[in-house]
Computed example of a mutant assay.
Amino acid sequence: MHRFLYIVIFILSTGPVFAASSIQNLQHLIDQKLYDQAARSGEKLLQKHAGDPDIEFLTAYAYQMNQQSGKAAKYYQELIRQYPELPEPRNNLAMIYLSDGDYDSASELLVNAINTHRSYATAYANLSNIYTGIASEAYRRAVSESNEPDSYANNIELTALTRLTPVRARATAESGLTEKSATSLTLVNQLIGWAKAWSEKDLDAYLGYYSNEHKLDYPTHRAWVEHRKKRILRPGFIRIEVGNFRIRAQSTNRATIDFDQSFNSLGYSDRVTKRIRLNRINSKWKITDERVLSVL
């Protein structure tokens, strides 16, 4: 299953005409995938226009795509220091950390990117993919009983997007992670944890994600628990992967999420679209209903 993490290319400022022309030329080299030439051109431009955020960002991107992550990271870090309100440098630096296997630093940068701009969907999607990747890597290692280093970062496909975002517009944009966005992250992470507990056959953790009222089509919650206990603890491995989360409805204490689920075991496998409903109970989100919507 391919997972996509997005690198953002964008124009930061509305500078003089000479700067705009230089940036256009630099952008053209990048569009042609002439990354080595673009990086060298960016360095020359910065000798004349030191500290120009547009040129610094595109130069960093050229280095990143030319497999010179150390030089790219240096520019991204400087941009974050100079322009803390911008989410894009954090997003791209997170990709470098991820390629080094540093999931925690990558996740932290993406959370901060979302904090700087509440509607920054790219960082949100990337963060979700990192969570999914961490869970998938845990499944792989659990199933294979392998102690090999994490391999998820090596399978990422980077997709470049173009964003034209002036610095001043970013500086005055409404910032801060809204309560709804923060809750969305919590809900996605909750379902990934649920799938991980299921895959690891951690029955107590798995059942802990459900409301005590949940019974599906069984007469009581206890009857449903006994059914799940027999299914989960039967011999053989279980591997669950979840992704493509779509939050259909959300309020302070209720949420409905559709997502794709892949189930694999020794004698059976399937891929389905599921819908899960959750209620916030004593400050914790609990599953109250779980249904298969369609077979994929």
Rank of each mutant, 00 (worst) to 15 (best):
T256K: 00
D258N: 12
T183R: 07
L45A: 03
N112C: 03
R275C: 00
I238M: 02
S144P: 04
Q32W: 09
I7L: 13
S146M: 06
A20G: 02
R234F: 06
L46I: 05
V111Y: 11
R277Q: 15
A205I: 01
R3N: 11
E241I: 14
Q64F: 10
Y6K: 00
I192A: 04
P235R: 02
L161C: 00
L110G: 04
Q67I: 05
E290H: 13
A121K: 13
L187E: 01
A205K: 06
E137S: 08
T172R: 00
L58D: 07
T162S: 07
D36I: 08
M1Y: 03
I80Y: 05
A205H: 02
S22M: 11
D36L: 09
T162N: 05
L45T: 10
D258R: 03
A195W: 14
P166F: 02
T273W: 09
S269C: 06
T59C: 06
I130W: 12
S294L: 09
G70E: 15
S294R: 09
G42W: 13
L45P: 00
D36S: 09
L98T: 06
D100N: 14
A113M: 10
N264G: 05
T14H: 05
R168S: 08
N264L: 07
Y206G: 01
L207N: 03
Y218P: 06
H49A: 07
V8P: 02
W194L: 09
R275T: 14
I80A: 10
D204G: 00
T288S: 13
